[in-house]
Design a protein around this nucleic acid. Sequence first.
DNA 1: TAGATTGTTAATCGATTAACAATC
DNA 2: TAGATTGTTAATCGATTAACAATC
Lengths: 213, 213
Amino acid sequence: MKKPKRNSVPGPSVSRLCHIYSLLEDAVDQGVTFLSSREIGEKLGISPHNVRKDINCLGEIGTSGSGYETSRLKAHIGEWLGFNLGRKACVAGLGNLGVSLLNSESFLAHQYTIVAGFDSSVNRLETITTGVPLFPAREIAAVVRRMGVELAVLTVPAREVRETAERLCEGGVRGIVNFSPAVLAAPKGVFVRNIDLVGEFRYLTALMELGKG
Amino acid sequence: MKKPKRNSVPGPSVSRLCHIYSLLEDAVDQGVTFLSSREIGEKLGISPHNVRKDINCLGEIGTSGSGYETSRLKAHIGEWLGFNLGRKACVAGLGNLGVSLLNSESFLAHQYTIVAGFDSSVNRLETITTGVPLFPAREIAAVVRRMGVELAVLTVPAREVRETAERLCEGGVRGIVNFSPAVLAAPKGVFVRNIDLVGEFRYLTALMELGKG
DNA sequence: TAGATTGTTAATCGATTAACAATC
DNA sequence: TAGATTGTTAATCGATTAACAATC
């Protein structure tokens, strides 16, 4: 067995391993104890070779002849990718979208807890009903640091994107999901996922137009 | 000049061309009339070679020595990728997230119009304030067909994902952005983008843990 | 043991990067 | 013209696919 290195996992593999992890969660929940690379690949639309290769980036773990033990593989991937510890997240920008994410229940079920919400309007903070503690935007850095928040969802207006992101990073946030209508360039040492609905529509439109599929 | 074919555009290029298009929109708005492949590449974090290659998938268009004329290139990419015509979209599932998207202003500015909203609860429909016409979910296929809706955002609970998607496709929708907490496999001839916030958090967590960057 | 499936090496494929002649 | 930048071909790089011996 070759000893795997943390940074030897290719980007596309990281993405697929996240999906494999989700699949394993379901499998464990449903009492499925073993899955082969072929079965995993079929459900995810990738080749069995690729599944094995991805999994092997994290070291040897399967059993020849019977496949992968779901709970063990899940724990193994979770260990490598950091899914086993609970992580704290916050929502910055409490418009309709921000508030709906604040109260979203799907996070808690998956080891992520929304521990704070921020908005630049104190008036707005007072009108929101939620179990999550809320703070004015100027306190972002301090609160984030004090609470140990690692992840943030950004749902502020375009003009506030950069400043808000800077405060979040100042407080020690290391990953940002940006739903705002402005692209956020990743500050050094921070990971950013820009999700832009117009962009998604465009991508779909382009695929439709080019007749792919 | 080689005659380009529609299906000769590689997937990664389609994605980058969408980003180039957004950049050109901004440039045109700001009165920038020419951009070189180097300038475009720098703003987007891709190599100038790659920029030229992507653009050339759609045929020759630049000017040696002075780069690309922004308005012309924008129109050219828009033509190929189908961004020049306005397109109709709908929102299916009017919880907090759905309603916030229904009233989002960023679509209209970019040739997409939300022309309908759907929810399975008639009671809920009556409580929503919006300028967009609303309909009960059972009318999805008929309304979508009648109105010529091509794109949809799916924000229903997990258990309603599949049925809702089927109705949308029945009505002729060709692209779906799925925000629901259940993966939607793309039906034949329909393009799907699954956006899963927990998945985004996981991907960021994995990058953080693997120390990429 | 026989059947099945893994881990790993080799072959293929496709995309990115580099280079440069052609062009404005 | 001289400088700059494109379009396109060639070289490199990396990921996916295939194959198969090792293993349960």
